[in-house]
Design a protein around this nucleic acid. Structure first.
Lengths: 236, 236
DNA sequence: CGAAGGGTTGAGCCCCTTCAATCTTAGTGG
DNA sequence: CCACTAAGATTGAAGGGGCTCAACCCTTCG
């Protein structure tokens, strides 16, 4: 969570009745239209939120990584307005919404922490609107790669500017509002420009500053701790 | 607010120390990068959130109408990650963040109400990602017109399927990731198809069902009360 | 060894953009 | 009451970024 809790609050949080479960790749955790009764904490693995349009196109609205709280969104609103699907195999802890709600009432500090967590999610949604609405394909992809780099770094999953991005090019296309074919071309272009290199699903960022520049990337919207971005920056 | 409070909670909410103010059209309420110390309740008028990209393009991420709470987003996160600007002349009530935070802690029910309010905002952001990412121009505009119709209706600002949309075509373009020129053409096309008619900034929806269909619009993401959409639907 | 999923590449096309001009409307001052 | 102005709406023509369609290749896995 993106908020500091004192030990008592933390204890209350950890005392929540959780149910551990393993989720297979590509399986749905929540489907649009379902009533959601429990909330998911992602322990390991990746997941993503998406909607499908009337003519069958898919748009991914968020990618989630280990340590993140999923579905505070859907569960508090009652009926899910989008799908939540596993990208990789995931280990999750499920918490009944009622318990979470009670916790938020008994310990306002914890409630506020979760609130802020969802506000950061919202900030990321906003940036994605900008990304998809106003940037050309090379900027869009660069921006996505920058965001994922910083968030993975925060989760401790970046080594020497290199990280595992467990998405197919089709899924990357669905994040950026492009087609898989074009994602492929732009990814190659980023390689040709010497900004990144790829090996399978692994991405290495070769020129962090220029990638940020081309991606029109400013980390402010991620609302990370002060040390966050700088840390990666120095590692690159 | 989108949540029911009991009278005691409501009283506590109304007892907040507010400062009334009138804001001129086009003036900024919050600028990206600023530290935000107070939160804005929009009493009358329209406002919008937007960001400007590195090469000077603008993307609008939300439009707000009378009765909505602005800037729970920015104020709780400390530093604004986007701009908030008046679309028309606005009357607002400003509440110090500290007071709001205290209220949320003392009266968890109110805090949860505000939280849910921001979750609905987030749901709208998500839908905009889909709109801008995966729909063609005629669907995009239809979708926007549907959303605004329902939200304005909830605010009691729709009469006979007709409402005042206080945006220039350039601003509509910035909502949809299009150019003003193209917005103009598509708007005319919607008129030619007999779906809407326009007079100045006033929009009249002539064929609600078909507009929804073309816009691939499903009101679920607005998380309104059960009666909401049906009401407008029957009025059309 | 065969099948399947995903990555890569080429050719042609189209939706939307860009550029630029004209028109309309509202506001302003003489 | 009427030029004058400025902002916004409208229209046309031409161009391009990304899409579509259709191969082919590569890797993994049973």
């Amino acid at each position: 969570m993106r908020v500091r809790l004192d030990s008592e609050d933390r204890a209350a949080f950890l005392a929540l009745p959780v149910q551990h479960r393993t989720v297979e790749p590509a399986s749905y955790m929540v489907r649009e239209g379902e009533r959601v009764e429990s909330c998911i904490l992602l322990l390991t693995g990746f997941a993503y939120r998406h909607k499908v349009t009337g003519d069958g196109q898919r748009q991914i609205m968020a990618v989630h990584m280990p340590g993140e709280f999923l579905d505070l969104q859907n569960s508090l609103l009652g009926v899910a307005d989008h799908n939540l699907q596993a990208l990789t195999r995931c280990e999750v802890a499920m918490v009944p919404v009622a318990a979470l709600r009670r916790l938020a009432e008994d310990r306002p500090r914890v409630g506020q922490g979760m609130w802020i967590d969802t506000l950061v999610d919202a900030a990321i949604f906003r940036e994605w609107i900008v990304n998809v609405g106003r940037r050309d394909s090379i900027s869009r992809l660069s921006h996505l790669l920058c965001e994922i780099a910083l968030r993975l770094d925060e989760a401790g999953l970046v080594r020497n500017g290199c990280y595992e991005l467990p998405m197919t090019q089709e899924q990357i296309a669905d994040c950026t509002g492009l087609t898989p074919v074009h994602v492929n071309r732009v990814l190659k272009e980023l390689g040709r420009l010497g900004l990144i290199s790829r090996d399978k699903r692994a991405v290495r960022i070769l020129e962090w500053d220029r990638l940020q520049e081309i991606g029109d990337f400013n980390a402010r919207y991620l609302h990370m701790e002060a040390g966050g971005p700088a840390k990666l920056h120095s590692a690159l």
